Simulated scan of single mutants.
Amino acid sequence: MKHFDKNIAGSIILKQAMQKAKVFNLIFTSSVGMTGRGHPSSLNKNLLTNNYEYSELIVEHAAG
């Protein structure tokens, strides 16, 4: 659960702070893309091996 708290909740807090500060651009990169399993856009939950990777994928999709 710690990965969900840090990755997902932390990303939500960051997005809220950015909106409050009227910052609308963010360069986002995720360590899931560095796992060596192909292009990040081709990742899906069936390829992920642990909760950390799954929480990163959720954030990637939310960042859109």
Results as ranks from 00 to 15, higher is better:
S41A: 11
Q19L: 14
G38S: 08
S55I: 03
S41W: 05
A21E: 14
S55N: 07
L14M: 11
K15N: 06
K45Q: 03
P40F: 02
H39I: 05
Q19T: 14
I13P: 05
H61W: 02
L14G: 04
T49G: 00
L26I: 09
H39A: 14
V23Q: 15
K15V: 07
L26C: 09
K45E: 06
G33A: 04
L26Q: 05
Y54P: 00
G33T: 05
G38R: 03
H61C: 00
N46R: 13
I12G: 00
T35N: 14
F28E: 01
V32G: 01
H39S: 12
T35S: 15
T49Q: 08
Y52V: 02
Y54Q: 00
G36A: 09
E56G: 08
S11E: 04
V32H: 06
G38T: 10
M34L: 15
K22C: 05
L48R: 06
R37H: 15
E53Q: 15
S31M: 09
M34R: 14
M34I: 15
N46I: 02
S11A: 10
S41Q: 12
Y54S: 01
K45T: 03
S41R: 07
E60W: 09
A21C: 10
M18L: 08
L47Y: 05
K15A: 10
Q19R: 15
Y54R: 00
K15E: 02
L57W: 07
Q19Y: 09
H39D: 14
T29E: 13
S30I: 03
N51V: 08
E53A: 08
A17Y: 01
F28R: 02
L43Y: 07
M18W: 08
S31A: 12
E56R: 06
G36W: 09
T35E: 15
S41K: 08
N51D: 09
I13F: 12
G33E: 04
G36K: 12
S55D: 13
M34P: 10
L14Y: 02
I13G: 08
S41L: 11
H39V: 03
S42I: 02
L47A: 04
F28T: 02
H39F: 11
H39E: 12
L14A: 10
F28P: 00
L26S: 01
Y52T: 03
I13M: 11
Y52I: 04
F24N: 13
L48K: 04
N46H: 13
S31V: 11
L43H: 08
N44H: 13
H39N: 14
V23C: 14
Y52K: 03
V59A: 03
G38N: 09
M18H: 11
S30Y: 08
V32K: 06
K20V: 06
L57H: 02
K15P: 05
Y54T: 06
P40K: 03
F28V: 06
N50W: 10
V32A: 13
G10P: 11
F28S: 04
L43S: 02
Q19E: 15
S30F: 10
V32P: 00
M34D: 15
H61R: 12
G10R: 09
F24M: 04
N44T: 13
G10S: 10
Q16Y: 09
E56I: 05
S30N: 06
S55Q: 06
T29S: 13
Y54M: 03
T49M: 03
Y54A: 01
N46E: 12
N51Q: 04
K22T: 12
A21L: 14
H61L: 00
M34T: 15
E53R: 07
